[in-house]
Deep mutational scan, measured.
Amino acid sequence: MQIFVKTATGKTITLEVEPSDTIENVKAKIQDKEGIPPDQQRLAFAGKQLEDGRTLSDYNIQKESTLHLALR
């Protein structure tokens, strides 16, 4: 499925993911596309910060959802 990640600079990244993917996997995909190390990424959805060990389906993130990326 496709999801979107909006960066602090307003850029939107499109990612191909599975509901079973962990947040860690998603951060690795962002690193592949943007070169941002996962340990510098903070992802949020619906106002909640997402934890590495959880999956997209844990957070009820569905196709075409938009996550927000902040850098630490």
Rank of each mutant, 00 (worst) to 15 (best):
S65Y: 14
I30E: 00
L43Q: 00
E64K: 06
A46C: 04
S20A: 12
G47D: 11
N60D: 14
Q41K: 01
D39V: 09
L56V: 05
Q31M: 08
G35R: 09
E64C: 04
S20T: 09
L71N: 09
N25E: 09
L71R: 09
K11D: 12
Q2M: 13
Y59V: 03
Q2P: 15
Y59T: 02
G53L: 15
V17S: 04
K11W: 10
D39I: 11
K48Q: 15
K6H: 08
R42Y: 11
H68D: 13
Q2W: 07
I30V: 04
A70S: 05
T14I: 06
T12E: 14
E34Y: 08
K27P: 00
Q41R: 01
F4Q: 11
A8Q: 11
G47K: 06
A8G: 08
A46D: 15
E64Q: 13
P19T: 11
T22E: 04
L43F: 03
N60V: 06
I3S: 00
Q31I: 02
T66F: 10
E24C: 04
K27G: 01
A44W: 12
T14G: 11
P38W: 13
K6N: 07
A8F: 07
R42V: 13
N60M: 15
I36V: 10
S65Q: 15
D21S: 07
D52A: 08
L56Q: 00
D21Y: 06
E34H: 06
D21E: 12
K48G: 07
L15P: 00
P38R: 15
G53N: 13
M1Q: 04
E18H: 12
G35P: 03
D39R: 09
A8K: 08
E24F: 07
V5A: 04
E16C: 04
A44C: 04
D21R: 02
F4M: 07
K27Y: 06
R54N: 10
N60Y: 09
Q40C: 03
I23V: 13
L15M: 08
L69R: 01
A70I: 11
D52C: 03
P37E: 12
E16H: 15
E18Y: 12
T22G: 04
L67K: 01
E34D: 07
K29C: 03
K48N: 13
K33C: 03
L43S: 00
E51R: 07
K11G: 13
S57H: 15
L69H: 02
V26P: 00
D21A: 12
I13T: 05
I61W: 01
S65N: 15
I3Q: 00
D52E: 10
L71I: 06
Q49R: 07
E24Y: 08
E51C: 04
A28V: 10
Q62R: 06
Y59D: 02
P37I: 07
K48S: 15
Q40Y: 07
N60S: 09
T7W: 07
M1K: 02
F4V: 06
S65T: 09
G53F: 12
L67Q: 01
Y59G: 01
K29H: 13
A70D: 14
D21T: 09
K27A: 02
T7D: 10
K11M: 06
I3M: 05
S65I: 09
G47N: 07
L56D: 00
Q62M: 12
D52G: 06
K63P: 10
T66G: 02
S57Y: 12
I23G: 02
H68T: 10
L56A: 02
L69G: 02
